[in-house]
Design a protein around this nucleic acid. Structure first.
Length: 585
RNA sequence: GCGCCCGUAGCUCAGCCGGAUAGAGCACUUGAUUCCUAAUCAAGGGGUCGCAGGUUCGAGUCCUGCCGGGCGCACCA
């Protein structure tokens, strides 16, 4: 249950009743009425802006209207008190029993708690990673990979029909370079001394295996043929090998895409012509010459007539070329075709997760989607800023020179996939992020990964102890869901319940905003709430979870602990982090 | 020169389609451990939300212009 949405519905019923009673004019727009947690918990449990939003259109004074609404809300079920504050806020206090009942919600739902049909099954396509198939993933890919994957999981939990997609850029000139590099490795595998890898080719060791595989399969068949003859086969073979590498990297961080779309097959099947035909039919294509960018004209600039898309009519800064001088399509042209393809597959909502270096690409792609779908398609681009790798505060050097770069796999081996997943969400995606290889292994409050793990492990520890101290009691979630919860009266206990009850709302609002980082922040809050309760039990023995002299109270507290563990696990599940039973090693 | 992102406590950052006295961690000060993991917790000081205008009952949040940092800027992907 989303508590806030629930009471918004309650409020709307009351507002409609006021309309009927003539205390409010009919036909008011309630869409801006919200029910939210107040910023300061001392104000109450819920706050609504209804009076402030409606006062003007209703021709009433905010505080007068607030009083009218408050009088009605005061009689609603589970409401314990209503008061008016500030410019016209209505603060609502709920009965403690209402919060205790949320424990039962959690225990019944298990880690499915927080799931909803908020998205109503709307199809959403999340495209992420989409790394060029020219080598293994490196650390620079980690952030987009995690952000995209968790965003997809988040949307799924919120009730959207999510497809995780990877766009394979297997069509450009870079694939020719890849194929040539592989051919060199192939000749090497046949015994030839190839010397240093020439400038401009991919020097990475990962191509040695490709060369050997080809030599083993085909022998010397391709050695003395012309490039024209071997190139197509080398392109295909090597691209497939690189995709296998990438998929293996992704699997090691728990990422599995539903759909891989090949740029080359899109082109081969006439997808680009198709998309351009659509634009042409709307008179959005023309042949023209672009002006050089002011203040920064490229040295080799020459006026050149090109096939252009009228992107500037859709919010872009300039029109954009679609065809290279050799007649082949630009990357943008095939990407237009790709997004039209996604739209035609039923995705009106598309999300692309890109690196910050693609920032200049966003407007044109959004312009393209608008034009191709007549404004029916929506493309949201999540840009991931750079990650700075540090080691104990000092920059950790990574270099692509000589083909040695820090691969994603090396990072995973160093700190583990769970750590990478969590840390990547400890900043908004559009803010730069420091990733300290040493600090993330710290077992301290400063390390959010540890902090959240520790909270869950503490919960599990209590439940393990309970099995012996309350031997014979049924401690299954199903049984705990039935125990009398009324003994839970301490402020720290209620605070924990309230934090847990915010989870469904967090899922929905994070999904709506396409902001997966909110999950990581929520988990830290929830963990803090639990740690606080734990330590309070250290100060006051009567607040310990396990009091063998009082089984009824202990069972109620175990229900709370089990629920806390469940919500923590629910959040970690969406992030893709495995909850731990204990941290002792 | 243009576009995009960012600018919030000494440091690192949250701030939920505009809402109340702007929050958390680190650091600093003080305190809590015979007892479920003190790997934690509690309390305290610390702010012209880059600057200046504007819209609004109300702006850290929206608009405009500056300043500072990052990224990008025809036939790469």
């Amino acid at each position: 249950m989303n508590v806030f949405k629930h009471f918004r519905d309650v409020l709307l019923v009351e507002l409609e009743a006021l309309e009927k009673a003539g205390e409010l004019p009919s036909g008011l727009d309630f869409s801006r009425v919200s029910v939210e947690p107040p910023r300061d918990p001392s104000h109450g449990d819920l706050a609504t802006n209804a009076a402030m939003v409606l006062a003007k259109p209703a021709g009433l004074k905010p505080r007068d209207l607030a009083q009218t609404i408050a009088d009605r809300l005061a009689t609603a079920s589970h409401v314990n008190g209503v008061d008016i504050a500030g410019p016209g806020f209505i603060n609502i206090r709920l009965e403690d029993d209402f919060w205790r009942a949320r424990i039962r919600d959690v225990l019944k739902a298990g880690t499915g708690y927080g799931a909803s049909n908020f998205g109503a099954g709307t199809p959403v396509n999340v495209e992420y990673v989409s790394a060029n198939p020219t080598g293994p993933l490196h650390v620079g890919h980690a952030r987009g990979t995690v952000v995209g994957d968790v965003l997809a999981s988040l949307l799924a939990k919120a009730g959207y029909a999510v497809t995780r997609e990877f766009y394979v850029n297997d069509a450009g000139g870079q694939i020719d370079v890849l194929a040539r590099s592989a051919h060199l490795r192939y000749r090497e595998a046949l015994g030839e001394d190839i010397g240093a890898i020439p400038e401009g080719l991919y020097p990475g060791d990962y191509l040695i295996d490709v060369g050997q595989a080809l030599a083993q399969r085909d022998g010397a068949k391709w050695r003395d043929l012309s490039e024209q003859q071997w190139l197509p086969e080398f392109r295909t073979f090597t691209t497939n090998a690189m995709m296998a590498l990438i998929k293996s990297d992704l699997a090691s961080i728990g990422v599995h895409h539903d759909v891989y779309t090949s740029e080359q097959s899109l082109i081969n099947s006439g997808g680009v012509e198709n998309a351009l035909e659509t634009l042409k039919s709307r008179d959005l294509l023309y042949r023209g010459t672009l002006e050089p960018p002011k203040g920064r004209a490229p040295e080799d600039w020459e006026p050149r007539p090109q096939l252009l898309f009228r992107a500037s009519e859709f919010g872009d800064d300039t029109d954009r070329p679609l065809q290279k001088s050799d007649g082949s399509w630009t990357y943008f042209a095939s990407d237009l075709a790709y997004h039209l393809d996604k739209y035609r597959r039923g995705f009106s909502t598309m999300i692309d997760v890109l690196g910050a270096d693609h920032g200049g690409y966003v407007k044109r792609m959004q312009a393209g989607v608008k034009a191709l779908t007549e404004n029916k398609g929506d493309l949201d681009v999540k840009m991931c800023q750079m990650v700075r790798l540090l080691a104990a505060g000092e920059p950790a050097v990574m270099s692509k020179r000589g083909g040695t770069f820090v691969t994603l796999k090396e990072l995973l081996d160093e700190v583990g996939g769970d750590v990478v997943r969590f840390i990547m969400l400890t900043r908004r995606n559009d803010a730069a992020l420091d990733f300290d290889l040493v600090k993330v292994k710290d077992q301290s409050r400063e390390n959010p990964v540890f902090y959240v793990h520790y909270a869950h492990a503490r919960c599990r520890s209590v439940l393990r102890h309970a099995a012996t101290e309350l031997a014979g009691a049924d401690l299954s979630p199903e049984a705990l869901a039935k125990v009398d919860l009324s003994p839970l009266t301490d402020s720290a206990e209620l605070a924990l319940m309230k934090t847990m009850a915010v989870w469904p709302r967090t899922v929905e609002s994070a999904a709506l905003a396409h902001e997966p980082h909110r999950l990581a922040f929520y988990l830290q809050e929830l963990a803090a709430s639990f740690h606080a309760l734990w330590t309070k039990g250290k100060d006051e023995a009567s607040l310990r979870f396990l009091l063998p002299a009082d089984p009824a109270l202990s069972l109620a507290r175990l229900a709370l602990v089990q629920a806390a563990a469940t919500v923590l696990a629910s959040g970690m599940e969406v992030i893709g982090v495995k909850p731990l039973e204990e941290l002792r090693s």
